[in-house]
Simulated assay, not measured.
Amino acid sequence: MSQWTAFEVTVADHVAEVTLIGPGKGNAMGPDFWRELPEVFAELDADTEVRAVVLAGRGKHFSFGLDLSAMAGELGPVLAGDALAKTRTEFHRMVLRMQGATTAVARSRTPVVAVIQGWCIGGGVDLIAAADIRYASADATFSVREAKVGMVADMGSLQRLPAIIGDAHTRELAFTAKDIDADAALRINLVNDVLPDADAALATARATAAQIAANPPLVVQGVKDVLDWPLTGTVDDGLRYVAAWNAAFLPSKDIGEAISAIFEKRPPSFTGE
């Protein structure tokens, strides 16, 4: 396998393990993550010996989501508030490229089993929504956090979660941007099961991946293709729409206030401007 900056990848007994390793705190998703994720899955898809993938995060947390500090260079120009057509067009292209990273997980040739411990925020939820199966440790906490930072989630949560947890639960999470614990995630079917700790969750994911890998690989791929087919067009249309929406409307006083409040560790005060 290739060497990566944001991931560690191993393959054994027909199962690949893809582990988020940062380099941002809490496996936050910076430029390396968004560039490498589709490359990792393209390489795994090309390896016919791989029949299932386990997706995990190193350390106490799955992911803090988008690394605002690391992404400042890409986000800064459009967030300045006076972005014209060229800047907005470049931002739109960047969003489409980033969406392609989570879509690479959803389009994986083989089933993807995600393991979540600690925080799973924003982009972390986008990522696990692209997986086929999800296991959580008892300490896992989930948040579709984007509304609190002044933006519409645009990496796949709004498009994929309704098929997983239903429209009403998706709206509640996205409108409120609240945190939910592992038990609540299980009640709404965001995760398949909750295990006592991260080690148990990972062991369960590995066992499930091994069961998948023991089945005829072309049949498993066929099942995945058939299950994914009804959603593909709807998800793709939704991703294109939100990319265009954010390119047009993301710059605002409220997003600047949200980001300032995060770094100043204070509650934000939104004005709707």
Rank of each mutant, 00 (worst) to 15 (best):
G76H: 02
A114I: 05
A129M: 15
V78R: 01
A130H: 13
G76I: 04
D139H: 12
I121M: 13
S143I: 05
M151N: 09
G76K: 01
V112L: 07
W119A: 15
G124Y: 13
F142Q: 02
Q117V: 00
R88V: 00
L75Y: 02
G122T: 13
M94Y: 03
L84F: 09
M151A: 13
G118P: 00
T103R: 14
A129H: 06
M71S: 02
V149L: 14
M151I: 07
R88H: 06
L127R: 09
F91V: 03
I116C: 15
S108N: 06
R107L: 03
A147W: 07
L79D: 02
V115H: 04
L96F: 03
G118I: 11
V125D: 11
G100H: 09
A138F: 11
G81W: 05
R88E: 01
R93M: 06
A129E: 15
G122N: 15
K148D: 14
R109E: 02
L127F: 09
R88W: 04
A83N: 00
A101T: 09
A140M: 08
P77K: 12
T87I: 15
M98A: 04
A85H: 13
A101G: 00
A140L: 07
G73A: 05
T102A: 06
V113E: 02
V105A: 06
R107K: 08
R145E: 10
A153W: 05
R134W: 09
A80D: 12
V149T: 11
R134G: 08
T89L: 13
E90G: 05
K86W: 09
S108V: 01
C120H: 06
I128Y: 13
I128D: 10
V95I: 15
A129N: 14
E90P: 05
L96P: 06
S143Y: 05
D82K: 08
M71W: 00
L79P: 02
I128E: 10
R134E: 03
Y135S: 14
A138T: 14
F142M: 11
M94A: 02
D82C: 02
A85G: 04
G150V: 01
G122P: 01
A131P: 09
G150N: 07
V113P: 04
G76T: 04
A85F: 10
T87S: 14
T141M: 12
I133G: 08
R97D: 08
E90R: 01
G118K: 06
A131Q: 06
A136T: 15
T89D: 15
K148Q: 14
V78Y: 01
A131V: 07
L127Y: 11
I133S: 14
S108A: 06
P77R: 03
K148F: 10
A72N: 07
Q117E: 14
E74I: 01
L75H: 03
V115K: 11
